[in-house]
Amino acid sequence: MALLTLTSPHAHGRNSTSRVMMTVTLATVPGLLVTTALFGFGTLVNVVLAVVVAMLAEALVLRIRQRPLGFFLKDYSALLTGVLLGLALPPLAPWWVTVVATAFAIVFGKQLYGGMGNNPFNPAMLGYALVLVSFPVQMTTNWAVSSQMADQPLAGLLDAITTIFSGSGADAFTGATPLDTYKHLISNSTAVELQKLPTFNGWMAGGWEWVNIAYLVGGLFLVYRRIITWHIPVAMLAALSLCSIVLGWDPDMYTPVSLHLFTGATMLGAFFIATDPVSAATTPRGKLIYGAGVGILVYVIRTWGAYPDAVAFGVLLMNLAAPFIDAYTQPRTYGHEKARRGLTSKEAR
């Protein structure tokens, strides 16, 4: 009787890669809903557009690389990349910005490195960085303004579609982000003056705080489901807070910690972008270092850099360091006095 010969273990948990990707995608839903509610339909349209482009780009490259389409599309990694890009891009950015960012993310950021699991950089952030440096105007002026600011209307679904696909931009719905505003205005005004601006609406950030809280909720869900570990988000947020408290203690000179934590892409970055497992550090201690590095970079670029937000750059720069961090942060293995470091095996012999 011929029997099957297999390697142990023969039992297997019910987890799967597709499930992981789908769970992450689902965890973004609260953030997406809040964004749509407060900033109009631009983001939703963006997400849909980005997902479609991502799937098409993935299918195209897989076809060219002669890989089984169904097998790879089912892992939903392209879907997730599209969703994250759609969420990260300015809600009313022209359609071609989204298309370029997504296609670049999938083709150059992922598939050309060998497909899922082989990309050294976070694909979504690579696409984002590309359009950010290529089209700075479109990337900084097309942010929707919250409905909490009564003097501006909220973009409806039709408005959003027209604005995005006309590519012209619509001043009626857009404005600069709170981070951008604060950074530019603080040089010749005081914090108290800025608080009175409609953008800030007190100490809070004109609706952005709710979006960030929604992402925080989604992120905690991921931690609870053990899709991600607490290390990277905690380290990143802690580093960012610490920097802004210690270095930027004076709100008359620097953006305060509340704005750092609850505006921009902070929570989205901490729980969904920086935790992308493929390109992040993987050892427990390495994750802490990696997360802290992202946090510090975000603070540094936000404060002294030319760009109002910096999650993309922070993550990409730390992606570069991830393999090195991993090599030097191996855990102490059972039965060993101390952890090994680096990649040379001389002491192993």
Binding site: L6, H12, N15, S16, T17, V20, F71, D75, S77, G115, M116, G117, N118, R226, I227, T229, P277, V278, A280, T282, T283, P284, K287, D326, Q330, P331, R332, T333, Y334, G335
Partner: peptide, 22 residues
């Protein structure tokens, strides 16, 4: 076993490893 997919370095194995390997 379903067909093996690419490793996404999710780190679940690191968490499960009883001898703290990577």
């Amino acid at each position: 076993n379903d067909m093996a997919m690419a490793c996404i370095r999710c780190g679940m194995c690191t968490e499960a490893c009883p001898v703290e390997l990577l």
